[in-house]
Design a protein around this nucleic acid. Structure first.
Lengths: 351, 351
DNA sequence: CAACTCGGAAAAATCGATTATTCATGTCCC
DNA sequence: GGGACATGAATAATCGATTTTTCCGAGTTG
């Protein structure tokens, strides 16, 4: 019961100092591993630390330096597997370097993105990993630049003149999807997607279209996009099908688009791959459990996170030089949702 | 170009003070909204703040108080929709009260859980929202108690003698699932789940079994569980079916169990609901997009997060009294994956 | 023996705030 | 006109560390 009060106030460096009979400066040195402390005094400090259960207050410790040992991470959302995995990776990598990761969700809002960034600037974070809502040209990146913050942009970005960028090689992956689909005989493909303004949309779309038209110049590539919200996309997709369009395959540029496409197929009673084929950018755990399993492009989360942290810490440690733009290769998993066109009762066949 | 150096060092309260021609204490008062400052001086401070772009350093500001305006959140994982939604809610609620949420993932490890908690204690967080890996009796809760930390336990918990708890009313929801399944005529149901040690497993299992046996004392309820990892569960489930067991419905206690069950059905060529019915605890976005749509118990994420923050802040503000244990009601969504037993070619029928 | 070096540790300044205390005015009233 | 009282702001202590500066004493050197 004697330590009841210990629970209220944690021991500070001065408590350790007085118990060890040395000054606070000496305790600080011992904790930092400085070797110019007499062996005997160091031992007394270790003993006092042990007895009091002392631990350094990391925030107080960071007060004197310009940047704190904190990395900020801003993701568009917390709800998806992709960003969840990304956070897990980033957290683990930050910890490995003795930093703490502080994560925030911009909830797909550029305004909130900037607010969070301002808050992280207030915290004097050493660096920021920003996954922008749209692309590298938003207000958030401008804020970071204007305030001299250190950071790296990931995911929905191409390249930037102020910050290093890391993203999946969407274009190559999309080209591979095109080769797979065209190779199976598809000549009328619908591309659906969310986030018209996202940097990755153009890369994915162009990559797909270029590869498709190279293989089959007569192929027809339709596009249905919507900005941000799922419902407008669903409405447009419904309109598209209502007009009588019957593509033999759908390529969705984002996970949510894949879900919208699937539920529209449901609604119309179309089955994959008999009536229509489906490939989605972004893999998810459930895609292998369903019937049919959904073909997907798997993003290299670990590689993106790893490279992002590498370049970020290089900048934190003062590395100069022009920003780099890294593309990490994806894997394309062709599953049962893709087949040859025209085999099902409701399928459209070629033009 | 004149403000090139401003980017290196942010203005401090002293910069504002000297520019406004007042003391730092006066600036602090103005920022805090104290009204005993002469109108003219306050205006000068506001002007200086404006010109310098000054913002209070929240960490420095918190140095003098015993607890910082930070809430720690520890989730078993970041990858799932459920914990992602939970984090989004908690983050938003913390911000509403002027606190910052710092999230960490225990990655389903009790050892890590305690490590993170120790780190948060070092940070002197005002409170912690802990979603334990197993239950309320783990080392993490013990650590919190031993160090006099303020916190609330959520999700995989029942009730505790030291902390408030908030979780979904698993038992009632499971009873409702039992009523639905038994009502459709099922008399042989398999319950699968992950996390034998999770507090919620017993609640869900007992709730289901009690309600089922009340409705049909002759019903057969089999149970296949595994601790933590998915693969052992998959192996046990495979063994179970290999023995020739043919339940007409499966109730999965956790999302990952639902995925395992689904992929086992796939492997055996069984279709829902013709060959076997399926209900899972935990809803996910994809469950309405697949064919069939998967029946699920929807957890009240907003309510859990809301109540957790309410009780947490009450404790932070000094509320005394015995810990409370709250159960928030779930919704049960019966979708197409549930039908009457015995309608499909591969179905087992009754014993 | 005075001057010098050097190891080691204490003292003091610093980080960026908050807050308790002190202090300098100005006003009122007898 | 001087003591009581209010007003408003400056000064200084504090939070928990780190880091620079100062200082002390032992050992070395000329």
């Amino acid at each position: 019961m004697a330590h009841r009060q210990d629970q209220l106030r944690r021991p500070s460096i001065h408590d350790v100092a007085s118990r060890a009979g040395v000054s606070a400066a000496t305790v600080s040195k011992v904790m930092a591993g400085v070797t110019t402390v007499k062996r005997e005094n160091a031992q007394r400090v270790f003993d006092a630390v042990e007895q009091l259960g002392y631990r350094v207050d990391p925030l107080a410790s960071d007060m004197r330096r310009a940047r704190r040992r904190i990395i900020g991470a801003i993701m568009p959302e917390f709800e998806s597997e992709f960003f969840g995995q990304m956070l897990t990776q980033l957290e683990s990598l930050a910890e490995q370097r003795g930093y703490t990761l502080v994560a925030a969700s911009s909830r797909e809002s550029e305004a909130r993105e900037t607010e969070i960034l301002a808050r992280m600037h207030d915290w004097r974070v050493a660096g920021v990993v920003l996954a922008p809502v749209r692309n590298e040209h938003g207000p958030a990146a401008a804020f970071m630049k204007a305030n001299g913050m250190t950071g790296v942009l990931i995911d929905r970005v191409l390249s930037d003149d102020a910050f290093d960028t890391v993203s999946a090689d969407s274009a190559s992956a999309s080209a591979e999807v095109a080769r797979e689909l065209l190779g199976k005989g598809h000549r009328h493909v619908l591309v659906v997607g969310l986030g018209e303004q996202a940097a990755t949309v153009r890369a994915r779309l162009d990559g797909f279209r270029a590869a498709a038209l190279r293989l089959a110049p007569d192929a027809r590539i339709d596009v249905v996009l919507a900005e941000t919200d799922v419902e407008p996309l669903r409405a447009r997709l419904r309109d598209y099908f209502a007009k009588g369009e019957r593509p033999t395959a759908v390529y969705s540029l984002f996970l949510k688009g894949t879900l919208v496409a699937l539920s529209e197929f449901r609604r119309r009673g179309w089955h994959c791959p008999d009536d229509i084929s489906l490939v989605g950018f972004d893999d998810a755990e459930w895609m292998q459990a369903t019937w049919p399993a959904i073909a997907a492009v798997v993003q290299p989360v670990r590689q993106i996170a790893g490279h992002a942290m590498d370049v970020l810490f290089a900048r934190i440690e003062g590395k100069q030089g022009p920003p780099t733009a890294r593309l990490e290769p994806c894997r394309v998993l062709m599953r049962e949702s893709v087949g040859a066109p025209g085999s099902g009762p409701h399928s459209g066949g070629r033009q």
